[in-house]
Simulated assay, not measured.
Amino acid sequence: MDACPYLNFDGRCREAFAFYAEVLGGRIDFLQTFGESPGCDGMAMPRDAVIHASLSADAVRLMGSDCPKERFRPMQGLYVALQIDDPDRARRVFEALMDGGRVEMPFAPTFWSAGFGCGTDRFGTPWMVNCTRAP
């Protein structure tokens, strides 16, 4: 069994997934809009809104879509947690994700890790970046 985060966006899924692919060094495996999807005529979504996207980077898999504005709720109560063994790479990923976002805990060494930081990116996705190397 596998699990992966499924992220919802208020019309910015395509932009967010392009950003995540660049920052994480991954690729978008699938991206389809409502306009490209069979059976979506008459749905209350813009034709260019993303109905489903999938991204892979190393062992990370993210999926997501845009959702109707009346059903959109900002993400809360969870973080996408990245475990990175190289402290320099972990810092670079964290700083890139937080560009234009809101840092809750700056990336720094902790008692459990050579580096840890958390915050919410400019798309509203909460992230934790943890270096798996001990301090």
Results as ranks from 00 to 15, higher is better:
G42I: 12
G42V: 12
M43D: 09
M45P: 02
R47K: 15
R47L: 14
D48R: 10
A49R: 14
A49P: 14
I51T: 15
I51A: 15
I51Y: 10
A53V: 04
S56R: 05
S56K: 14
S56M: 12
A57K: 03
A57M: 07
D58W: 04
D58R: 11
A59I: 07
A59F: 10
V60S: 02
V60Y: 03
V60G: 00
R61D: 02
R61V: 07
R61E: 01
L62D: 03
L62V: 00
M63K: 00
M63L: 03
G64K: 04
G64C: 03
S65P: 12
S65V: 01
S65H: 01
D66W: 11
D66V: 11
P68I: 15
K69D: 10
K69S: 10
E70G: 11
E70D: 12
F72C: 06
F72W: 11
R73H: 05
R73P: 11
R73C: 09
P74S: 08
M75V: 11
M75L: 05
M75D: 09
Q76C: 05
G77K: 03
G77M: 09
L78Y: 14
L78K: 04
Y79P: 13
Y79E: 12
L82S: 01
L82T: 04
Q83C: 06
I84H: 03
I84Y: 05
I84S: 04
D85L: 03
D85C: 12
D86F: 13
D88H: 13
D88M: 08
D88R: 05
D88C: 06
R89D: 07
R89I: 05
A90R: 01
R91W: 15
R91V: 12
R92N: 06
F94P: 03
F94Q: 04
E95G: 08
A96M: 05
A96H: 07
M98C: 04
M98E: 04
D99L: 11
D99H: 15
D99C: 10
D99K: 09
D99G: 10
G100P: 12
G101E: 09
R102Y: 12
R102F: 13
E104K: 09
M105G: 15
M105I: 14
M105E: 13
P106E: 14
P106K: 15
F107Y: 15
F107R: 06
F107H: 14
A108F: 11
A108Q: 14
P109R: 08
P109F: 08
P109M: 05
P109Y: 03
T110S: 06
W112R: 10
S113P: 08
S113D: 10
S113F: 14
A114D: 03
A114S: 08
G115D: 02
G115K: 13
F116P: 01
G117H: 13
C118P: 06
C118W: 14
C118Y: 09
G119L: 02
G119H: 02
T120I: 04
T120W: 05
T120G: 01
D121M: 00
D121V: 07
R122M: 03
R122F: 07
R122Y: 13
F123D: 00
T125R: 00
T125V: 06
T125S: 02
P126L: 01
P126A: 02
W127C: 00
M128Y: 02
M128D: 09
M128T: 07
M128G: 06
